[in-house]
């Protein structure tokens, strides 16, 4: 460490210098989601209002966004699974 460097003088921790973009498809492959009141399963709709099979046993693209590290976009971000914050009540 240089003399001017103290832990509080860095604008970014070293680990954050290792950020890279996601590969492949980002963004969610649906326009709207809605809960089916009867089955409690989510319905996914495309821009035309058609129901699409999404994030289930679908294409590679839809799987990509539903995988543990799936992406998102700035407007409608889907937090990657292991990035989601677990909310809990501490002891």
């Amino acid at each position: 460490m240089n003399r001017a460097e103290t832990p509080a003088s860095f604008t970014q921790a070293w680990g954050a210098t290792r950020l890279v973009p996601f590969k492949g498809a980002t963004g969610v492959p649906y326009a709207r989601v809605e809960l089916d009141p009867v089955t409690q399963v989510t319905r996914y709709y495309d821009l035309d209002g058609q129901i699409i099979k999404c994030g289930r046993h679908g294409s590679n693209q839809s799987q990509n966004t539903s995988n543990p590290t799936g992406g998102g976009d700035g407007k409608n971000p889907t937090p990657p699974d292991d990035v989601n914050v677990t909310d809990y009540v501490p002891d």
Binding site: M1, E5, F10, A13, W14, L19, V20, T26, D73, V83
Partner: peptide
């Protein structure tokens, strides 16, 4: 650019290590 970024598990080049290690726990 508004796109999400993340940290993958990748090898560390020891020459890349610097004082910003002290900014938090690694």
């Amino acid at each position: 650019n508004g796109h999400p970024v993340t940290i993958w598990v990748r090898p560390v080049d020891p020459d890349d290590l610097d004082g910003s290690i002290t900014a938090t726990v690694h």
